[in-house]
């Protein structure tokens, strides 16, 4: 069943059109990879799906579980299961990671009409997940991402993903800034979340990540459109020959 349907999406930022009619369908249980040159609009697409302000959708549609996503506030989308692991996670000084996780999780649960998670249950869950991601407990006592290394920030994103159990995970360049071991740990974390009900959209520049997180479909984006889709071998092909072959198609 289709989880996410992006239909002919046109998006403007400050009077400039960035996405020129983008179409993408992601079914439950699938892993999609999006590749494409710098500035082709990958992050823009992920932001529009998550509901970041400042983007004007001039045409097209985004359906999530059949519902009109563009009608929903960003926090509503989060509660319904849209998760975006940011390319550049921000720092929030003075707010401990633990407190942030709990506040966010409870906000989502509340929005879904569920009860707050009891503190012991919450702690148990966080401990389990952080252990599997090699995140020391000390880090959770620090301000959100404050003084975290690039790799730690990315792992913190995967930690949240594991904790919130979203149905759509968009990972924007989660491999950038990760060393080889950290990449494997993070990828294992992502793979552990793979389930028949959950879909992943993995944005990356490097085929290497796709050795760990194996995609069902690979899309090539160029100049604000999806210009080619294929199986995982498409990523290898791109690694060989680069993006120039698609420039004209765009």
């Amino acid at each position: 069943m289709a989880l996410l349907e992006v239909k002919d999406l046109k998006v403007r930022v400050e009077e400039r059109e960035i996405l020129h009619g983008l179409t993408l369908t992601v079914n439950e249980g699938e892993i999609h990879a999006i590749m494409g040159p710098n500035g082709s609009g990958k992050s823009t697409l992920s932001h529009v799906i998550a509901g970041k302000p400042g983007y004007e959708v001039t045409d097209g549609q985004i359906l999530f579980k059949g519902e009109d996503l563009l009608e929903m506030a960003p926090e509503e989308r989060a509660a319904k299961g849209v998760f975006l692991a940011f390319q550049y996670p921000v720092e929030i000084p003075g707010v401990t990671t633990m407190n942030f996780l709990r506040t966010a999780l409870n906000a989502q649960r509340k929005a879904r009409g569920e009860s707050e998670l009891m503190v012991p249950d919450f702690l148990k869950k966080v401990r389990e997940v952080s252990k599997s991601l090699n995140i020391p407990q000390d880090m959770l006592k620090r301000g959100v991402n404050v003084g975290f290394s690039g790799g730690e920030k990315k792992r913190n994103e995967v930690l949240q993903m594991a904790l919130f159990e979203p149905s759509l995970c968009i990972l924007d360049e989660m491999d950038s800034g990760l060393d080889i071991d950290a990449l494997r740990i993070a990828a294992d974390g992502v793979n552990a979340l793979h389930s028949p009900k959950r879909a992943m959209v993995v944005i990356t520049h490097y085929q290497r990540l796709l050795n760990y997180i194996v995609p069902d479909v690979v899309h090539v984006m160029s100049k604000g459109r999806v210009v080619k889709s294929g199986g995982k071998e498409l990523a290898l092909e791109l690694e060989e020959s680069g993006y120039t072959q698609f420039e004209d198609a765009a």
């Binding site: 998550a50 926090e75 989060a78 509660a79 550049y88 966010a104 949240q160 919130f164």
Partner: peptide
């Protein structure tokens, strides 16, 4: 960006 990060995680 900080506000959007929080909102993306479910906070109003």
């Amino acid at each position: 960006d900080v506000l959007f990060y929080c909102v993306q995680r479910g906070l109003s």
